[in-house]
């Protein structure tokens, strides 16, 4: 499977998140993190899985990321949702944001990061909550001017 063009920009934000992605790829290949000699660059997990892993890592390392890093990381994903392909947008929604919401359910302070989540991404989270039958708290709802 190929890696989308926007992946490098996403990985440039944080060494910790980039390392987590490398670990996910290594796990997929069933080998060490530096990869088997016969591993092809396209032998990578589906984007949905990589984004799900990043969602968990983002939640567990959020306190180590600067506000600027969070903003940049979430901004790349917002751009994918806004202007990327339908397949990439679905992967961001069902991979990253589903994982992030699961982390929230497990205690991650999503509210602290919510202001940095783009409008399209916020709408995506609200849709996921609705799909799962979870009532979105007041702070997640769009503010009426």
């Amino acid at each position: 499977m190929s890696t989308p063009a926007w992946w490098d920009e996403l990985m440039s934000v944080s060494d910790a998140l980039a390392a987590a992605d490398r670990a996910e790829v290594a796990y997929w290949r069933g080998g060490a993190e530096d990869g088997r000699e016969d591993s092809h660059e396209d032998d990578v997990p589906p984007v949905t899985l990589r984004l799900a892993a990043l969602g968990r890592e983002f939640a567990s390392h959020a306190h180590e990321l600067t506000a600027e890093q969070q903003h940049r990381f979430l901004g790349v994903l917002e751009d994918v949702l806004r202007t990327g392909s339908e397949a990439d947008g679905t992967a961001v929604a069902t991979g990253f944001f589903e994982s992030l919401l699961n982390a929230w359910n497990g205690g991650f302070d999503l509210q602290a990061a919510w202001a940095g989540v783009g409008a399209e991404s916020q709408a995506c989270c609200l849709d996921l909550n609705q799909f799962w039958g979870i009532e979105s708290p007041e702070w997640m709802l769009p503010r009426v001017a």
């Binding site: 499977m1 190929s2 589906p46 949905t48 899985l49 679905t90 992967a91 069902t94």
Partner: peptide, 19 residues
């Protein structure tokens, strides 16, 4: 997606999507 891993290894899809 993880459940489909064996089939992915066998069929080598160009892309995998889930929804």
């Amino acid at each position: 997606v993880r459940t489909c891993r064996p089939l992915q290894d066998e069929l080598r899809p160009l892309a995998v999507e889930a929804r």
